[in-house]
Computed example of a mutant assay.
Amino acid sequence: MTELKGRTAVVTGGETGIGLGIVEALAGAGANVLIGGILAEAGQKAAEAVSAKGGTVAFQRTDVRSADEVEALVEAAVARFGRLDVMVNNAGVFDGFADCVETTEALWDQVIDINLKGCFLGCRAALKRMTPQGSGRIVNTASVGGLRGAADGLSYTASKFGIIGLTRQAAVTHSQFGITINAICPGVIATEIRANSAAILGADGPDMQRGVGSDPDAYKRMVPAKRKGLTAEVAAVALFLASDAASYVTGQAIAIDGGWTAT
């Protein structure tokens, strides 16, 4: 049901965390995968590690804030593997729970550009290739923070709500061409997003450790499963959406959150 042998996938932000989990799942199902990301050392290591397990994976440094670089990433995948079947727009940064007053213009611009604009550029580049061929799967990484207002900071929340809106509109206009477009909405997942966001945002980033040391178990009061999710659990849903099994699923925002949004 999730066999992807011979198909080509691009995953932005696939160097670490959820993105890497998705790369591993897609490669494990037989897809040829090109990772696009800004963390070059981590990206190269990720490609080598997954390839060592038998996958066909390569890395190309890509800043998703740049239309030219996103277009070049997709074009490289087509040139290397012959076509584009799956686009996963996963690149994103966290805002350290900064509220409206605490959010600087610089932080807002960075988070919106990476999370939301980067998703738009990835969708646009992919649709240019998928529409003429009459098939394709696009999976956008949103968040529980795109479904409710109390999960994250202002700019992150705005970007993830935006991704869900973008996903739904694009699905309405492009599903007629045999393309499905969906969003996944992870909840509390064990990743390195705080450290990676600090490295990417630099001086524009706020304190990424807020709320961690004071009450590291706070999520257990929100999440019925009483644990953090695994990247592999998020990747399993992304893999399903990238497969033929999900051919009639489009325009959806699917929570992977241990029951958080059910409360």
Score class of each variant (00 low, 15 high):
Val237Gly: 09
Leu20Ser: 09
Ile164Asp: 08
Lys220Asp: 06
Asp152Cys: 13
Val249His: 04
Thr104Phe: 02
Gly251Tyr: 05
Val11Phe: 00
Asp85Asn: 06
Asn90Met: 10
Ala151Glu: 13
Arg210Tyr: 03
Lys228Tyr: 12
Glu3Pro: 05
Ala203Ser: 15
Ala79Thr: 12
Met208Glu: 02
Glu75Arg: 14
Leu34His: 05
Pro224Thr: 04
Thr104Ala: 02
Thr2Ser: 10
Leu39Val: 09
Ile164Ser: 07
Gly21Tyr: 04
Phe97Gly: 08
Leu39Gln: 14
Gly165Thr: 02
Ala29Cys: 01
Thr173Ser: 14
Gln110Asn: 13
Pro186Asp: 03
Val111Leu: 04
Glu75Ile: 09
Arg61His: 10
Gly258Asp: 01
Glu102Phe: 06
Ile193Gly: 03
Arg129Ala: 01
Glu15Tyr: 07
Ser214Pro: 10
Gln169Glu: 14
Lys226His: 11
Ala262Cys: 11
Thr104Glu: 03
Lys226Ile: 10
Thr250Gly: 00
Val10Pro: 10
Val23His: 06
Ala67Val: 13
Ala253Cys: 03
Leu127His: 01
Ala190Cys: 04
Leu154Thr: 15
Glu15Phe: 07
Val88Pro: 06
Val237Met: 15
Glu102His: 08
Ile112Asn: 11
Asp85Cys: 01
Ala262Phe: 07
Pro132Val: 00
Thr103Met: 02
Ile181Arg: 09
Leu230Ala: 14
Ala49Val: 03
Ala25Glu: 03
Trp260Cys: 05
Phe94Ile: 06
Cys100Tyr: 13
Gly178Lys: 03
Asn32Lys: 14
Pro206Lys: 04
Arg227Ala: 13
Val234Lys: 07
Ser214Lys: 13
Ala46Glu: 11
Ile189Met: 00
Gly118Val: 08
Phe177Ile: 01
Thr12Asp: 07
Ala27His: 04
Arg210Thr: 03
Thr12Glu: 05
Ala262Glu: 09
Gly122Phe: 01
Glu71Ile: 11
Ile22Cys: 02
Cys119Ala: 15
Glu192Pro: 13
Ala218His: 13
Phe240Glu: 03
Arg129Asn: 01
Ala255Met: 05
Ala126Met: 01
Gly146Asp: 02
Lys220Ile: 03
Gly211Val: 08
Ala150Leu: 09
Trp108Asn: 11
Gly211Ser: 11
Ala79Val: 08
Asp207Ile: 01
Ala151Gly: 04
Leu84Arg: 10
His174Asp: 04
Gly258Phe: 03
Gly153Tyr: 05
Ala195Thr: 14
Ser159Leu: 04
Thr131Phe: 02
Gly37Asn: 09
Asp99Cys: 06
Val111Ile: 04
Gly202Phe: 05
Lys117Asn: 13
Gly21Ala: 03
Gly55Asn: 12
Gly17His: 02
Arg7Gly: 09
Gln252Val: 09
Ser143Glu: 06
Asp207Thr: 04
Thr8Val: 15
Gly13Arg: 04
Gln44His: 13
Val86Trp: 07
Asp152Pro: 06
Ile181Asn: 08
Gly13Lys: 05
Val212Trp: 12
Thr16His: 02
Ala150Gln: 12
Thr167Gln: 10
His174Gly: 02
Thr157Asp: 10
Thr263Ala: 09
Phe120Ala: 12
